[in-house]
């Protein structure tokens, strides 16, 4: 089956004073209709730029390239801005990380919810408002109809993010890209919103790329997971493979950061994989994770390829699969 989205060797480069920043260095994946891919990685590894590159919303300084970026049969890399704008909101939409600043303070929620649909589908204002009220209820906002006349500053962060989610659903897109949609919210709301997004996806059947820095979040929603490190995927696989048979040391490091009920001692130090990310200026020398890796060896001086470690499972490491699977994570 032709995948909904097929990305091959996607790159983003940004000229900076001292050379070329390479925050996205050749990313490839396929996404089927209705499927959820989670991209997981630390802050700064290039997740947001990847999602913006997919949407054609990169900042002007950034350059996008790749072998192809096929969405619903056409290669987005060759599209003009005007053609791209026709797809955005209509066939692919995006939810951003910052609910507090992602809505225009000058217009009502109703106006901002409806304007995309009015443009793309040439429906009347009343029709668009009906759809908006319907979706606000779907995302769990009470008194949805009266919310339409409110302004963003009258809503809490959690409500604003629900509005953003409803907005992304307005035109019934085939693909939604959610860039850390719950990161700015507090934990109790995070769980609710996550569950809601999962339900909405089941109901509306769109594919989703869900981006997060928190592997703990993805267990509940991912079909496939891509672990991203320093601008490239270091391990990809089904959710089950990543959680049951993690292969890359970085994936194991990330997993060790998730508290496991009953297993993790109270007060145990959880958090981040220790060490720092290499500079992405002018690319990365060798394996970017080597300095933080308990298994580093001389061969890590040249960057390994992403190689198959079973059906649909791949990993970017010089070590063989058995060695990797048997290794217990401890910080380097």
């Amino acid at each position: 089956m032709e995948p909904l989205l097929s990305v091959k060797n996607l790159r983003v480069e940004i000229p900076v004073g001292t050379g070329m920043l390479k925050p996205v260095r050749g990313i490839s994946f396929d996404l089927q209709k209705g499927e959820t891919l989670c991209i997981v990685g630390e802050s700064g590894c290039g997740k947001s730029l990847t999602s913006l590159a997919l949407m054609g919303l990169l900042p002007k300084v950034a350059r996008r390239s790749g072998d192809h970026l096929r969405f619903a049969g056409q290669d987005l890399l060759g599209l003009k801005e005007r053609q791209m704008a026709k797809l955005r909101g209509q066939d692919m939409s995006m939810i951003f990380q910052e609910p507090m600043t992602s809505l225009n303070p000058a217009y009502t929620i109703g106006d901002q919810l409806t304007e995309g649909m009015i443009r793309h589908q040439r429906v009347s204002r009343a029709e668009a408002r009906d759809r908006a009220a319907f979706l606000l209820e779907k995302v769990g906002i009470t008194a949805a109809a009266s919310r339409l006349t409110q302004y963003p500053h009258q809503l809490s962060g959690g409500l604003r993010q629900r509005v953003m989610i409803a907005m992304s659903l307005m035109c019934g897109p085939d693909l939604i890209i959610a860039d850390e949609p719950t990161t700015a919210l507090d934990v109790t709301i995070q769980a609710k919103i996550l569950r809601m997004m999962k339900n909405l996806q089941a109901e509306f059947g769109m594919a989703m790329i869900f981006i997060t820095h928190d592997l703990g979040v993805v267990a509940r929603i991912a079909d496939k997971i891509a672990v991203m490190y320093a601008g490239a995927f270091v391990e990809t696989g089904t959710a089950q493979q990543i959680f049951d048979a993690p292969t890359h040391p970085y994936t194991k490091g990330l997993l060790s950061c998730i508290p496991v009920p009953g297993k993790t001692e109270r007060g145990a130090r959880l958090g981040a994989v220790p060490g720092v990310v290499p500079s992405l200026i002018n690319g990365v020398e060798g394996c970017g994770f080597a300095s933080r890796c308990p298994m580093r060896q001389a061969a890590c001086g040249s960057e390994p390829d992403l190689t198959d470690r079973g059906a649909e499972h791949s990993c970017r490491c010089v070590h063989d699969t058995d060695t990797l699977r048997n290794m217990e994570w401890e910080a380097a």
Binding site: M55, L57, E81, R82, A85, K86, L87, R88, G89, Q90, S93, M94, F96, E98, T101, S102, L103, N104, P105, Q112, E115, G116, R119, H120, M164, M167
Partner: peptide
């Protein structure tokens, strides 16, 4: 540079709008 401008573009509004 504001986030809501990016949101507006993400909706596919035309540049003049």
């Amino acid at each position: 540079r504001a986030d809501y401008i990016r949101t507006a573009r993400a909706k596919g509004l035309n540049p003049a709008k």
